[in-house]
């Protein structure tokens, strides 16, 4: 649930499921706007972290809501709205990552098929000046490490750590057994630690001392 909704507006609002039902049955634009208002921030955060770029995250958020409206007929009123929306947003992210990967592959083919090793590091070279990561060395390191993780590991980490979803809920969204989520999470944490571990050991460089003046 989006944060920051005032108590007063909560008194008058409907549940996500009721609003989505109105969107589905009556094309109710006001209900849709309500859903966008509640969910745009979590969806934008998820997309930004999945693709490692704030601008793309914003675009993917728009794409996710466009898909939500287009797929309103597929919504099952008995299902949780949040599960439906997370799934749509994740699929939008996966599609974008695949697009970028295909582009990189065709660019490499044009180069004579050399240096295929960097393919899994999508977004590594893209500096995102609008992200909080820019200008913060540790944050940039985290961004790069997350992008190096395979999508399935990044997904569980982002959903659990950043969005605070329970492991059971993640299993529901990804439509996999909870045990699989747990093993993916353990693998994700192990890989992430391997990527970040050198940073733990590296002593932080101390600021250079001013040279002492020579006393003659």
């Amino acid at each position: 649930m989006a944060r920051g909704i005032s108590t007063l507006s909560l008194l008058f609002c409907t549940t996500d499921e009721q609003a989505m039902l109105r969107v589905q049955t009556q094309d109710d634009h006001r209900a849709f706007a309500q859903l966008v208002e509640r969910w745009e921030e979590p969806i934008r955060r998820l997309c930004t972290r999945m693709v490692g770029d704030a601008h793309k995250g914003e675009d993917l958020k728009q794409e996710a809501f466009a898909r939500l409206f287009a797929k309103r007929e597929h919504y099952q009123p008995t299902a949780r709205f949040s599960t439906f929306l997370w799934r749509i947003a994740l699929n939008a992210c996966y599609d974008e990552l695949r697009r970028v990967k295909r582009r990189a592959e065709s660019a490499l083919e044009l180069d004579g098929g050399e240096a295929l090793e960097g393919l899994d590091e999508i977004g590594m070279d893209s500096d995102d000046p609008h992200s909080e990561a820019a200008g913060n060395e540790e944050a940039e390191m985290v961004r790069r490490a997350l992008l190096k993780l395979p999508e399935m590991y990044r997904t569980v980490l982002v959903l659990r750590h950043y969005e605070g979803l329970k492991l059971k809920k993640i299993a529901e969204i990804l439509e996999i057994p909870e045990g699989t989520v747990n093993s993916r999470m353990a693998e994700a944490l192990a890989k992430l630690t391997r990527l970040l571990e050198p940073q733990f050991r590296e002593p932080k460089p101390s600021p250079p001392r001013p040279r002492e003046a020579l006393v003659l």
């Binding site: 934008r44 995250g57 985290v142 750590h161």
Partner: peptide, 17 residues
């Protein structure tokens, strides 16, 4: 190690619009 990694993840925040 996992806990340290999780703590480090917090350094990357996405500001609200």
């Amino acid at each position: 190690g996992w806990r340290r990694s999780l703590k480090m993840l917090d350094s990357w925040s996405v500001p609200a619009t």
